[in-house]
Deep mutational scan, measured.
Amino acid sequence: WEITFERNGKRITVRTTDHRLLELFEKLWRNGADERELERLAEEINR
């Protein structure tokens, strides 16, 4: 799966075969987690 999240013109794409990681990322994104931390998390998930 691949999903791109966008907020205030900032886009972060997450790619993984584990839908649970996408759900976790989406919850953090929707709850306003720090964008720098989300970028780092996305990099780890995308590996």
Rank of each mutant, 00 (worst) to 15 (best):
Trp29Gly: 05
Phe5Tyr: 12
Leu21Thr: 04
Asn8Pro: 03
Asp34Ser: 12
Arg47Thr: 10
Glu26Asp: 09
Leu41Gly: 00
Glu43Gln: 12
Ala33Gln: 05
Ile3Asp: 02
Ile45Ala: 04
Glu44Val: 14
Glu23His: 13
Leu22Arg: 05
Ile12Val: 06
Gly32Glu: 09
Gly32Val: 03
His19Tyr: 13
Lys27Thr: 14
Leu21Met: 12
Arg11Glu: 08
Leu22Asn: 01
Val14Tyr: 01
Trp29His: 09
Thr4Asn: 08
Phe5Asn: 00
Ile45Val: 04
Asn46Phe: 07
Glu35Thr: 12
Asp34Ile: 15
Arg7Trp: 09
Glu39Ser: 09
Ala42Asp: 01
His19Val: 14
Glu35Trp: 15
Glu39Gly: 06
Asp18Thr: 04
Arg20Met: 13
Leu24Met: 12
Trp29Phe: 14
Ile45Met: 07
Arg40Asn: 12
Asn8Ser: 07
His19Arg: 12
Thr4Ala: 08
Thr4Ile: 13
Ala33Met: 10
Glu39Met: 12
Gly9Leu: 02
Leu28Cys: 10
Asp34Val: 15
Phe5Ile: 13
Asn31Asp: 15
Leu38Glu: 01
Phe25Lys: 00
Glu26Val: 08
Asn8Gly: 10
Arg40Asp: 09
Arg20Gly: 12
Ile45Arg: 01
Arg36Ile: 15
Asn31His: 09
Asn8Trp: 02
Ile3Leu: 11
Leu38Cys: 03
Thr17Cys: 08
Thr17Asn: 15
Leu21Ser: 05
Thr4Leu: 08
Asn8Lys: 04
Thr16Val: 10
Leu38Asp: 00
Thr13Cys: 05
Ile3Ala: 10
Lys10Leu: 14
Thr4Asp: 07
Glu39Asn: 07
Glu2Arg: 00
Asn8Arg: 03
Glu35Tyr: 15
Asn31Ala: 11
Arg15Gly: 03
Arg30Cys: 14
Asn46Pro: 02
Ile12Cys: 03
Glu2Ile: 07
Leu22Trp: 06
Ala42Ser: 05
Leu41Ile: 09
Gly9Ile: 00
Glu6Asn: 03
Lys10Thr: 14
Arg7Ser: 13
Leu41Pro: 00
Ile3Cys: 08
Glu43Ala: 11
Glu26Phe: 10
Ala33Gly: 08
Glu43Trp: 02
Arg15Cys: 03
Arg7Asn: 07
Val14Ile: 15
Leu28Val: 06
Gly9Val: 00
Asp18Trp: 02
Asn46Tyr: 05
Lys10Cys: 07
Arg36Glu: 14
Leu21Asn: 04
Asn8Met: 06
Arg11Gln: 14
Glu39Tyr: 05
Ala42Met: 11
Ala33Val: 11
Leu38Gly: 01
Val14Leu: 13
Leu38Ile: 07
Arg11His: 13
Asp18Cys: 05
Asp34Thr: 11
Thr17Ser: 14
Arg30His: 15
Thr13Asn: 04
Ala42Lys: 02
Gly32Ile: 04
Leu22Asp: 00
Phe25Ala: 01
Asp34Trp: 15
Leu38Val: 03
Arg30Thr: 11
Gly32Trp: 05
His19Ala: 13
Asn8Asp: 14
Thr16Asp: 01
Glu26Ala: 06
Arg40Gly: 08
Gly9Ser: 04
Arg30Glu: 15
Arg11Val: 14
Lys10Glu: 06
Thr4Ser: 11
Arg15Pro: 01
Thr13Val: 13
Trp29Lys: 04
Gly9Tyr: 00
Arg20Asp: 12
Arg15Phe: 05
Asn31Tyr: 04
